[in-house]
Every structure is written in C-alpha cells, then in structure tokens.
C-alpha cells in the first residue's frame, strides 16, 4: 500500500470539502473493499477521507412507508435490526449473509452500492425494491444508479447518504454463493410492491440489473410457472473460474424460482 493523507471528518459537508481539496482523493467507509484494493496497489489515492466518524450517515428508520438506511450502517447492524426484520425481512437476511461476521461488522450499505462489485448482494435488493439512493447532491432512482461494472452514477465528490426502500408486500432474496468469499455467483431479489413484481439480478452479468424477461414471465404474479421457458441472453453472462455463462443463465432462473416461492 502506498502512503496517503488520512483525513478524518465529522460531517458530510466536511467530507465533500476534503474531497474537493484533495489531488486524487477517495472516501473510505468500512474499508472492506477499499483497503484490500489499496494493498494490491490497484488504487493509490493521495487522500483517504474516512466517513467512519460521520454520525449523520448511520441509522435506520421507517418513514412514510419507506425503510431508510443510512449509508454508513454496517451489514451487521442491518441484519440485527428489529425494524428491518419487521419492515423488509428479506433485506435483513441479505445483509446477514454478506461475507462473514467480521466483514459484516465493518462493511456498509453505502460502500457496497458505491463500489458496485458485479457480485455484490445489495444492488439486487436496491433494484428490485425500487429504492432511491440519496446522495449529498440529489436523489437517484435505483435503475439509474448502477451504470456498469464497478461504475455508478456518483460523481467523484458525491457521497451516498442513505437509501430509501419502499415497503414491499412480499420480498425474498436467493443467492448461489461462492463458497470462499460468499459473494454472489448469481443472486436474485424478487419483490412485490404496489401490485408490481420486480426482479433484481446480481452476479450474472457485468452490472446488477432488472430482469425484464423474468418479470414479463411472472406478469405481476408471484407464480414461477413461466420461468423455465424464459430465454436469457447467454452471451451477456459473466464467465469465469466459478461458473460458465451457460451455468449462470441457468442459475438465474433457478434462483428466481426459489425467490418467488420464498415470497409466498
């Protein structure tokens, strides 16, 4: 890891200012991706701006039929939260199955979605639940937030402050996990909200996305009968040592069926 200036801040405004002053700054949240990336010298920021002391970025509340989770809320806190377990139990379970206990004690919601690893779990939920990402500048709808592999709509000096999840009538997440890292080889989040059924897919392709073909087969119902017949574009699937493109395409359908069944 190359040396950098460490900047500890206590407010969103101070973090933005520190970023604007830095030559090539980066935010650090839980550090569970940022620090390994810096160790491998895949990133070497001039300044590391630590959001760990920004109290306004943590917290969980339910307001106007929305579950609002602060960006710096750890996976462990989301998993253990009685409010999340009651409002969107599938989200609490998702958080409780990210990585391992020590990773969950540091890793955060904001860090996970800002990083947008194509195998991360949260993006599937953010998309399927039709969440809104609140930042230091604006509100970004889920579908516009994830733009490509490790790419999001965020500007360099923009901070995710919270994510607002509309409460669904039913929701479930199923992941086929990598047995070493627990990242999703394929993860599918299915949610029924306001009479509409949405499917969020992660791990399968370069970018977490809505499964429009799967949604069309469901036709607004929690009935997986039509899923087997869906044709998925195999050429767009990731292919690596963990799973071939064909296998991933197959897993997307299996995980969708399981998630739909778990919604019932």
């Amino acid at each position: 890891m190359y040396e950098f200036n460490y900047r500890k801040v206590d407010s969103v405004a101070a973090a933005v200012e520190a970023m604007q002053q830095a030559e090539d700054g980066k935010f650090v949240a839980g550090g569970q991706t940022m620090l390994p990336t810096m160790k491998h010298r895949l990133a070497s920021p001039s300044d590391l701006i630590d959001l760990g002391g920004v109290a306004e970025l943590t917290g969980i509340s339910v307001e106007n039929e929305n579950l609002i989770v602060g960006a710096m809320t750890t996976h462990a806190a989301v998993a253990a939260s009685a409010e999340v377990q009651q409002a969107i139990p599938a989200l609490a379970r998702l958080a409780g199955n990210i990585g391992d206990p020590a990773v969950r004690n540091r890793g955060t919601l904001g860090g996970s979605i800002a990083n947008h690893d194509p195998a991360a779990d949260y993006p599937a939920a953010v998309i399927a639940l039709g969440a809104t990402v609140q930042t230091s500048k604006r509100a970004i709808p889920a579908e516009e937030f994830f733009t490509g592999m490790f790419e999001t709509a965020l500007k360099d000096d923009e901070i995710v402050t919270s994510v607002s999840f509309p409460l669904p009538e039913a929701a479930a997440y199923m992941k086929f996990e990598n047995p070493a890292s627990r990242y999703a080889i394929v993860g599918v989040f299915v949610a029924k909200t306001g009479g509409e059924v949405r499917v969020g897919v992660t791990g399968a392709t370069a970018c977490a996305h809505r499964g429009f073909r799967l949604e069309a087969a469901l036709g607004g119902e929690l009935d997986a009968g039509g899923i087997d017949a869906v044709e998925l574009p195999v050429e767009q699937m990731n292919s690596d040592i963990h799973a071939s493109a064909e296998y991933r395409a197959h897993l997307v359908k299996v995980m969708t069926k399981r998630a739909v069944e778990a919604c019932q």
């Binding site: 550090g31 620090l35 390994p36 630590d50 990773v103 004690n105 070493a180």
Partner: peptide, 27 residues
C-alpha cells in the same frame, strides 16, 4: 492472506470481531 478472507488476524475492536488486516491503525 492479502485478500481479507482467511480470518487469522481477527481481533475485537470495541467488543466486535474485525479483521485487523483490513483496518488502519489510525482508525
């Protein structure tokens, strides 16, 4: 390891388990 995966470095910080290879001393 250098991938934050092995857990040989787990300690407790303020009563919670963390991987001490994936936290800065200054933090």
């Amino acid at each position: 390891c250098d991938t934050s995966q092995c857990g040989a470095c787990v300690i407790h910080v303020n009563g919670k388990s963390v991987k001490s290879c994936t936290m800065l001393a200054i933090q």
